[in-house]
Design a protein around this nucleic acid. Sequence first.
DNA 1: GGAGCAGTTGGTGCA
DNA 2: CTGCACCAACTGCTC
Length: 548
Amino acid sequence: MEKKTVIHWFRKGLRIHDNPALLAAIEEAVKSSSALRPIFILDPLILTWMRVGPNRWRFLQQSLDQLNENLTKIGSKLYVIRGTPENVFKRIFKDWNISYITYEYDTEPYAKRRDALIEQLAHEANIRIESEISHTIYNTQLVIKKNGGKAPLTMQKFLSVVDSMSKPPIPVPAPTKIPEICKPTLDSFEKENPHCYDCPTLLELKVNEKNLNACKFPGGETEALNRLNKILLKKSWICNFEKPNTSSNSLEPSTTVLSPYLKFGCLSSRLFYYEINKIISGQKHSKPPVSLIGQLMWREFYYTVSSDTPNFDKMVGNPICCQVPWDTNEKHLEAWTYGKTGYPFIDAIMRQLRQEGWIHHLARHAVACFLTRGDLWISWEEGLKVFDELLLDSDWALNAGNWMWLSASAFFHQFFRVYSPVAFGKKTDKFGDYIKKYVPELNKYPVDYIYEPWKAPLSVQTKAGCLIGKDYPKRIVIHEDVYKVNISKMSLAYKNNKTNDNNKQKGESSKESEPAAKKMKKVSKSTNTTKSDSKKSKQTSLTKFLKK
DNA sequence: GGAGCAGTTGGTGCA
DNA sequence: CTGCACCAACTGCTC
């Protein structure tokens, strides 16, 4: 009989620092003189259905490599096991004589289902299983409890709730040397194939290295800590940080780019939180929601709301999401996705996203507004899918939450504030250097036309070697026309939502009211000017009110 | 229950 | 260059 084995199961949390579940596993292994096997499960099926672009596969591959390195340094290693979690556990329950399993708690619905299944299996096999909270700074369930059983739906409310709670747990140190006695022997698979638990290569992850761009943000815990430590040196920058004042289109990132490391858990959000707090305490400093701590609080906020909201990543069946009759337009969606809208600022952002896997938060605002309520009137769920594929930091809760925010579907409601695909970028890059970098076909354009190349006279276009409509697309919509129509469509969607909500509350059948989508089509044809339309709607709501 | 205010990050035009 | 009113007018929260 194989000697007893203790498992720590890595999923997110790809680090050894501030990893309480890993520490618990080590402690148990030492105490019971068991073998310690830290594992990561690589499900080959996921390679076929998950929306993960090559940049993020590379980031994961690098993160696993560094995790294995860091585990090796303390006398262990990472066992990467191929298969579905269910099949993998069924097999190792038998082969490894497992007595105890630990993992980091995960709030995502997919993860909750997965973990419930494994907990059930462990229970049936009489194996102890324990999870620790360390992906978020706060325990999301406690935040919800403190707020009366519901997730706070505004940032201010969230901040007041966490302020009234006790300070979050202090990060735990990384483990040091693991005793020899906890070293596992080779199992029968390893005897046949000594490399069967090795970290995956890019080839195994079906990434064609030839298609990859230069790696700007390498994955892994060591990279994460190096990046954090460099930032921590900039004390006055940290104290003065205000997100809205950072640039969406500088040639090098104007923010920390720690998000991919937080997403995979290469960096502990609690460590980041405590290190920043150390620096700002006793100093004059910016405050949430715009400060660096505020950025972490936004992450907590979305994690908390998403854990408490059904269908959080969808419009239909999502109780906090405004139901909007978005259009489908394959051509426009494709133009947006590949950076061919004819708006250089928008296209530069979308191309940077595809190449590098990271774009500034405000750049995300500009393209998200453009896709949804601003210009194209396409569902935020389509944008979410593209971001999910291409972002290194794509995080289920944050991605859906921010898409709802930008499309004014939840959290944010001032839908009449629309980003201009021309004016917004000019504020921080008046010469268009960012555009020239990512949309190189325009790099000979004079500064007067770089944001609006369709305005360039033919002679200028010829001289710059780039004809609009041939070498660079003609803009696919006229922003100054469509955004006004879209504002009034949004206004109507809000009104319909309100009536539907009221009907629901009264317990009336919603079938009686005309479906929102039908109403919308009628109106969008007749909306020429915002003024007359909104006056009309004001009147109708007033008469309705008087009739009551 | 209604008024008033605030809400991480809009754009434009004018003083 | 900065500050401000205006655009038309949203929701959630507080009092």
